[in-house]
C-alpha cells in the first residue's frame, strides 16, 4: 500500500476541501486501497505558502495551492488573477484551457504534475459605502493582500492597507479596513456582512486552486493506479467547477439574507474597472513576455 499526504490550506468544510476528500476516497475505492491519500485540510500539516515547495521537495506527495499566489515566482501563475480578463465561469474555463499547457510544462520542469484545478467564485467589491464609480473608492481603506489587490487600490486611488486575514474581522469593526475584494464565498466564511453593507458583483477574476502532485511520487505508481488517480482527478475537476458555481449562487443569497446590498456594478463603475484591468494587463504582459502574449492570444482566439 502506498500512502500519500495531501496538505491543503482551507478549512475542512470549505467546498474545495470537501471536493478533495471525495477525490481521496474515489482514489481509494478505484485502487482497492492500494493508494491511500490523507488530506490535511485547514493548514494542519503545512501552511498555505509552504505547500508548493513541500510538494516540490517531496515532503508531501500532493497538495492544493492557490495558483495566483505564486505570481511573484512566475507571472504565468498569476494569469487567472488578472482583473477583468476573464469574468464568469465560461471565460474562466476558456482561460484555463489557454493556461493549462503552459502550467503543465512549468510544473513539469519543477518536478511536479497538475492533477486538476477548481476556481473560486468570482471576486467582487465589498464596501462600507455605496460605490457607483471608481471615484467613490478614492481614499477609502482598501485591504491589500496580494500584489494585484494593492495595484488595483493604487489605480483607483484607494489607500492600500495591510491587514492579515486573521485580523480582518476586527479591522473591519474598527474601520481600519473599509473595502475588500474577494468572492461571495470568502465573504460568507469571514462574515464580511457583519461590517460591510455593499457588495458589487463585478466578477473581476476567478482565481483557481490547483491540486498538484510530486512527479517522482506519481511515476512510482503502477499504470493502473496512475490511471485511477487521473480519472478521479478529472471527476474532481468537473465536480469542483459545478460546486463552485453553486457556492457562488448560494453565498450571494446568504450575503443578501444578512442584509447586504448585493448588486451588479453600475455602468460607470464597470467602465472604470475595465480601464484598471487594461492597465494591469499591459503591465503584466511586459513582465510575462512572449509566453504571456501567446497565452493571451490562445484565450482570445
Amino acid at each position: 500500500q502506498t500512502k500519500w499526504d495531501l496538505p491543503a490550506a482551507y478549512p475542512a468544510t470549505n467546498f474545495h476541501s470537501v471536493n478533495l476528500a471525495t477525490f481521496a476516497s474515489d482514489v481509494a475505492k478505484a485502487t482497492d486501497g492500494k493508494l491511500a491519500i490523507t488530506v490535511h485540510p485547514g493548514a494542519s500539516l503545512f501552511k498555505a505558502p509552504e505547500i508548493k515547495r513541500a510538494v516540490q521537495g517531496g515532503q508531501a506527495q500532493a497538495g492544493e495551492i492557490l495558483l495566483a499566489a505564486y505570481q511573484n515566482e512566475w507571472q504565468m501563475f498569476g494569469a487567472d488573477g488578472l482583473p477583468f480578463l476573464a469574468t464568469g465561469y465560461d471565460d474562466a474555463m476558456k482561460l484555463y484551457k489557454a493556461q493549462k499547457p503552459i502550467l503543465e510544462k512549468k510544473l513539469g520542469e519543477q518536478g511536479m504534475q497538475l492533477l486538476y484545478t477548481v476556481p473560486w467564485p468570482p471576486q467582487g467589491i465589498y464596501s462600507k459605502k455605496a460605490v457607483t464609480s471608481a471615484a467613490d473608492l478614492k481614499g477609502s481603506k482598501w485591504r491589500a493582500y496580494s500584489p494585484a489587490t494593492s495595484r488595483i487600490a493604487e489605480l483607483v486611488g484607494a489607500q492600500p492597507v495591510t491587514v492579515q486575514a486573521a485580523e480582518l474581522s476586527q479591522a473591519l469593526a474598527t474601520g481600519a479596513v473599509e473595502a475588500n475584494m474577494t468572492s461571495g464565498a470568502t465573504g460568507v466564511d469571514s462574515k464580511l456582512y457583519e461590517h460591510l453593507k455593499f457588495y458589487y458583483d463585478v466578477q473581476a477574476w476567478l482565481p483557481k486552486n490547483a491540486v498538484i502532485v510530486n512527479k517522482r511520487a506519481f511515476d512510482a505508481l503502477d499504470k493502473a493506479t496512475q490511471d485511477a488517480v487521473l480519472k478521479a482527478a478529472a471527476d474532481a475537476e468537473t465536480r469542483g467547477w459545478a460546486a463552485s458555481q453553486k457556492v457562488n449562487t448560494d453565498t450571494l443569497a446568504v450575503l443578501k439574507a444578512n442584509g447586504m446590498a448585493v448588486e451588479p456594478p453600475s455602468a460607470t463603475l464597470k467602465a472604470d474597472m475595465m480601464k484598471v484591468g487594461d492597465t494591469m494587463l499591459k503591465e503584466w504582459l511586459e513582465k510575462a513576455g512572449p509566453e504571456g502574449q501567446a497565452m493571451l492570444d490562445g484565450y482570445k482566439k
Binding site: 478549512p11 475542512a12 468544510t13 485547514g42 486575514a165 486573521a166 485580523e167 474581522s169 476586527q170 469593526a173 466564511d189 462574515k191 457583519e194
Partner: peptide, 21 residues
C-alpha cells in the same frame, strides 16, 4: 479578547470571530 487562539478556532469552525471575542 483579543485572542490568537480564538482566531484560529474561528477560522476552523467558520464562526464569527467578533462573536467569539
Amino acid at each position: 479578547p483579543p485572542s490568537i487562539i480564538m482566531i484560529v478556532y474561528g477560522v476552523a469552525a467558520e464562526v464569527s470571530i467578533a462573536k467569539l471575542f
